[in-house]
Amino acid sequence: MTINSTEKGKILTANRLRDGEVVFLTHSGLWSENIDGAVLATEPQAQAALEARGKDDERANLVTGVYSFDAERREGHVFASHIKERIRSLGPTVRADLGKQAEGRGGHFAALQGV
């Protein structure tokens, strides 16, 4: 895998139970607040493993509302296919001063700017 390659796959996300923070499952099996730390599952088998891990952590009351979404890794950064996930990984597009984008843990790819 080279740094310039584009991989497509699924990312597992949830909200942390105690505070609702948006988190993404990482390689180490921990949850990251930053989408760029997420593990991208490219194979169905790996995706199933992610889902299973998510269910476990839901049962362990670490996170809630687990689901996966389509994304690509471009040059080391995650690009979520849907605008909703880009907003979740950054914060509201109308308040750049709030959320992950303002706290140094935002995704690399901006959600669409205001119209």
Binding site: D19, E21, T64, G65, I87, G91, P92, G99
Partner: peptide, 10 residues
């Protein structure tokens, strides 16, 4: 009790 789970937090 009015508590939702929304896009960024509760």
């Amino acid at each position: 009790n009015g508590l939702y789970l929304q896009l960024h937090a509760y």
